[in-house]
């Protein structure tokens, strides 16, 4: 088989993957109100986006939620990964299996179960319920990411540190954490994105007191076309690109 057939195939699939995104970006600068025809360059949708007070508020809410969810899940996830990696304990396989099942189970199953729980214990739906839910579905991803790094980790390194006089705590601070830092960062970013993107779980566990961006978008796109969504989508795309590049930059820098 020749060389260019696979490459042509890859190119076509990538083109199809990026076509909708390209259309979205281009149409975000469209001045036409109908949304389907090109009516000239304009920034009016960006303008109307930022003049929409509820929208800006939802953006901030989502951002805070994603920051909090990513941070909490990285903290708990990293500790869990460490415990799974270092200790032998009863129920280790069960814990592993449970995390795997949480990762694999359809979001909607998690969503309704959490809704049932929150209503049962009388937790008001809002920031706290969203945070608990988001941390729960981010957790296994962080654990997996950190575990992957730890499995490539030389078992003797912690022992070498102990041997040279470091206490368990000092060893964790000076050896373990620096070595798994890239995984922590990757896990945090993954959690951040998962949280920012989530529609299914949030639909069930958010309340009117704390409106977040995906739900706001959802209510806009369900009916008809809203050109503001183009602008918002473009902004989100740029935002995630910046985040991704930032993480790549930090990772390559930490390797040096």
């Amino acid at each position: 088989m020749n060389r260019w057939l696979p490459r042509a195939y890859l190119s076509i699939v990538y083109a199809l993957l990026y076509l909708p995104i390209l259309v979205l970006v281009v149409f975000s600068f469209n001045s036409s109100r109908t949304g389907y025809r090109w009516g000239g360059l304009s920034l009016q949708w960006y303008e109307s986006l930022f003049n929409n007070h509820a929208m800006v508020q939802a953006m901030w809410n989502s951002l805070w939620l994603a920051l909090a969810a990513a941070t909490v899940s990285t903290l708990i996830g990293a500790l869990t990964a460490l415990a799974l990696h270092r200790y032998r304990f009863r129920g280790k396989r069960v814990l592993n299996g449970m995390l795997f099942v949480v990762m694999m189970s359809p979001e909607i199953v998690l969503a309704i179960s959490l809704l049932a729980l929150f209503l049962l214990i009388g937790l008001q739906l809002g920031f706290v319920s969203l945070l608990l839910a988001h941390v729960t579905f981010c957790l296994p991803f962080v654990v997996i990411t950190v575990m992957a790094r730890l499995s490539g980790f030389d078992e003797r390194l912690p022992e070498a540190a102990r041997d040279l006089g470091a206490s368990d705590f000092t060893m964790t601070r000076t050896v373990l954490i620096p070595v798994i830092m890239p995984a922590l960062l990757a896990g945090w970013l993954l959690g951040f994105t998962l949280s920012l993107d989530d529609v299914v779980v949030s639909t069930f566990v958010s309340g009117p007191s704390y409106e977040i961006l995906p739900l706001r978008i959802y209510s806009m796109v369900r009916v008809g076309l809203k050109p503001e969504v183009n602008a918002l989508g473009t902004l989100l795309l740029v935002f995630s690109l910046v985040m991704l590049m930032l993480s790549q930059w930090i990772l390559t820098r930490s390797k040096r």
Binding site: D154, R156, L157, A160, D163, L164, V179
Partner: peptide, 18 residues
């Protein structure tokens, strides 16, 4: 181990990579 006045040279050196 951190309180024992002895030290170890490990099989695959276990140098801190960072």
């Amino acid at each position: 181990p951190e309180h024992r006045p002895l030290n170890t040279v490990f099989q695959h050196y276990a140098l801190f990579p960072h």
